[in-house]
Write a protein that binds this DNA or RNA. Sequence first.
DNA 1: AAATTTTAGATTAACGTTAATTTAAAGTCT
DNA 2: AGACTTTAAATTAACGTTAATCTAAAATTT
Lengths: 335, 335
Amino acid sequence: MRATLKTIAEATGFSINTVSRVLRNDRRISNETSTLIKGKAEELGYIPDAIASSMRKPKSMTIGVVSADSSNPFFSEVIRGVSEKAEELGYQMLIGNTEENASKEEHLIRLFLSRKVDGLIVMPTSEKEEKHKAFYSALPVPYIFAGRYIEGLEDHSILHSDEDGERSVFEYLLRNGHRSILYLSGPENVSNTGARDRGMEEAFRALGIAAEKKNIFHLAGHAEDGYKAVNTALNRGMEFSAVVCFNDIIAMGVLKSLSENDLSVPDDVEVIGYDNLMFSQFMKPALSTVDVPKHRLGYKAMEVLNEHIENPELPYRTENLPVRLVFRDSTAGKR
Amino acid sequence: MRATLKTIAEATGFSINTVSRVLRNDRRISNETSTLIKGKAEELGYIPDAIASSMRKPKSMTIGVVSADSSNPFFSEVIRGVSEKAEELGYQMLIGNTEENASKEEHLIRLFLSRKVDGLIVMPTSEKEEKHKAFYSALPVPYIFAGRYIEGLEDHSILHSDEDGERSVFEYLLRNGHRSILYLSGPENVSNTGARDRGMEEAFRALGIAAEKKNIFHLAGHAEDGYKAVNTALNRGMEFSAVVCFNDIIAMGVLKSLSENDLSVPDDVEVIGYDNLMFSQFMKPALSTVDVPKHRLGYKAMEVLNEHIENPELPYRTENLPVRLVFRDSTAGKR
DNA sequence: AAATTTTAGATTAACGTTAATTTAAAGTCT
DNA sequence: AGACTTTAAATTAACGTTAATCTAAAATTT
């Protein structure tokens, strides 16, 4: 049988409460008693029961993390950031994965609430569904969206500047003379897709060039998607001198297809990814991409979440972390 | 105020216990009462308190997952497997990361025990420390090591056949005439390193060839390590016609360095990785590697853990999942 | 020395559930 | 019709903590 406060109380002759207070380092306990009780606790291998504790304490010191796609290192990296800050603050993390499925997302959150999490960090899907929004609005705990937003709840998001990022990608390409750009955008129900598409359009508008809509594909975001999309484009006889990818993983597939089709990067086609995964610098050619501060995003999300847990009155507000275009070998003109 | 069983009881006039039983679908409740109470629960937005519940129930339906290095997709993939089975079985996961630090590992596990996990899945460090072993032996809950073992506790491990894997790598290379092989092995305190080193030696022995010890480096396992190791080897004037890497990430760095030094893969140097990460097939040249069933490893670990949770008497026994050498473009001779 | 404050600890009542036991009414059997 | 059985629910007692309140002795003040 596992040792409890009661076991220790009986073994030492003190009351349960005294034992509890000693182990929590409450003052008003004599040194003598304290060492005696602590010694006994150690001896009996006492492990505090955080579950019982959080029945009485207002906080459970647990947060729920809802990730979208665990196969993408982007999210792992964000979670690393969350994890680091969570550890600093003494929170434990319950983690779940939605695989971009909105109803799984809600289900997971309900489970987390059931476990009395003090707050939630979510990488949500379905930016526009009214029902989904209502679900979040009714949440009884603070929540932060990391890297994405849901329409009408933008305040809850810590973002990276998707519009800026994609605008700068397209501005670079347009300035370098590209007019036929294959744009492999992301899934339709995710906020980053919309934001980046807007960034793309801004670039065309700013430079007074008409965008050719037919060069846009919306992909789920896996390497195979990029691979197949380029194959398809080539088979259809589409002409393009640059490929802009929604993420670095798509870009990997793109590089593979281009290579197989004897198209040289960057000479025949320039390729730009998004996210700046660790891997990207090691690809051949090393991938030019948009650096997103993934770790910082997670860290910040946890930091802000904690502020809202500490002070439920605190108004929410969107934060936008800056991104940065990184030029490597898959693009031709530096700058 | 959050609705509790009490709230619903008061609202409907039934006792707390009746409400509890209705919501748990206990029999001996009239349909009438049941629908009435369930309706009220819905209306009040009742969220069951799993914390309070697990105070009474023998199981918390939570498991702890202790991962070693979150920056390596190998572990993410294993955790995905764990997660999938955990979900099927109704467990929630508490996840933490040790970054290969044994004392952090113990700390994390203590926190998990405090949260009353029903069991643990661990990717442990420090295969040989007596104290570390004692720590595990004293654990009050079932635990499974995934992909690694601790000496003396091999029974608790679900492994992939490291010896077989590395042996087949070296047998392939030796048979293909390679005599100067740069072997970039793993960290010294991790069981896979020892097992693979043994596999390597077996291959030499089996073919009656003397191994050149000086060609072994022990690396931490990051891409930079591989990159630097090859640079160092080249600077020292070491000759080698093949590089065997502890994992695919190291291999990425290796490929980069070789490419920068104008060594052609596989013509000048053959390169073989380990793990078969998703990325590896997209590298250029596509990486030959040892496929490890990562997802299955995690899935299996959760499956076995559950068996031990259900039946604490069940004796532990090592399982070894088969691995498979995958030939791609970084090796020359297929077979 | 009596009155007051401080110290060290005990007692009691929760927190939200679940499990075991009990009760009362309704049904069924002989 | 009286004796059993079944059904539907209530009552009570936990689970392991913590917080609020209380008590008795010791130390300090006047």
